[in-house]
């Protein structure tokens, strides 16, 4: 009697220990993220002000100046890359969701998986070879092509996966009303999966916003404001790279500030994606 009692006690203690361990390790997981954010905020918050966000960089030696060129360049790269990747990616995703089997579909699926695994620097080299060399100049367009290639697998996969979840009975309901296949796909199936597609697009944007490697020899960087797609542009990650590798402490501080802006933007994208996925979720 006595022994079985203490036995149970021991088991309860073990159980509590296990629970404590699991909770502890879960918290340990978020420590790196918190440290990164803490570090960036600590070093970057000091330089953030209105001028930093709206002014152009000044030459070394002058104080002040900002990152307006990089912000504009990053926005331009994102918009251009999205214009290329979203139509292609969503259409390919629709095709894959509709065509579950077949040689072409599995071929496309395999290609997307491989593409996802290709290092971004390699994609940059390819964009350099295709666009920069043939046009004879570094440009926002070439950078966008590289980023669009990186967005594609994310968009294709999320579109396919979301549309697969749309129940077949909705497709049948639409077809049974005499609606053509194309209209059924565009007006019933795609709208039913729209939140998932949007989420995928936002995550793809979040993914490419911080890419540096493919921009090194495509968008190239530009200390002046440029809104011309055929000219080199700066971007936040490129600017961080250039400032952080410079020998000047003032530029280091700017790199931290730009890093803070970049991280806030990417986290905002991720957060928006979460909110959209939750708020607009279609109940089947």
């Amino acid at each position: 009697m006595h022994t079985s009692h203490s036995n149970i006690r021991l088991r309860i203690i073990k159980d509590r220990l296990f629970l404590a361990l699991v909770v502890l390790l879960s918290f340990a997981m978020i420590v790196p993220l918190l440290l990164i954010i803490f570090h960036i905020v600590k070093n970057g918050i000091g330089v953030i002000n209105w001028e930093f966000l709206t002014a152009l960089p000044r030459p070394m030696g002058e104080t002040g100046g900002g990152i307006a060129n990089a912000l504009a360049g990053t926005m331009m790269l994102i918009v251009l890359a999205s214009l290329i990747a979203i139509p292609l990616g969503v259409l390919a995703g629709i095709y894959l969701a509709e065509q579950k089997t077949g040689r072409i579909a599995s071929g496309v699926r395999l290609c997307m998986e491989v593409l996802q695994g290709i290092p971004s620097i390699v994609i940059g080299i390819v964009a350099y070879a295709w666009v920069v060399i043939s046009m004879g100049t570094f440009s926002a367009l070439s950078g966008s092509v590289a980023l669009a290639i990186m967005m594609l697998p994310v968009i294709v996969r999320s579109t396919e996966e979301t549309l697969r979840l749309v129940p077949d009975i909705l497709r049948e309901a639409s077809l049974a009303l005499g609606v053509s296949y194309a209209r059924t796909v565009l007006k019933i199936i795609v709208p039913s999966g729209l939140t998932g597609i949007l989420t995928g697009i936002l995550l793809a944007i979040a993914r490419i916003t911080g890419e540096t490697a493919p921009l090194l020899f495509t968008a190239f960087g530009n200390p002046y404001m440029s809104l011309n797609v055929l000219k080199p542009v700066d971007s936040l990650p490129l600017m961080i790279f250039n400032y952080a590798t410079s020998p000047y402490p003032e530029w280091h501080a700017k790199a931290w500030g730009a890093a803070l802006v970049l991280v806030v933007f990417v986290m905002g994208m991720n957060f928006t994606a979460k909110v959209i996925a939750k708020r607009w979720k279609v109940q089947f």
Partner: peptide, 10 residues
């Protein structure tokens, strides 16, 4: 009309 009710959810 189908086995399971299938109004368009959107």
């Amino acid at each position: 009309v189908f086995q399971r009710p299938n109004p368009f959810p959107t």
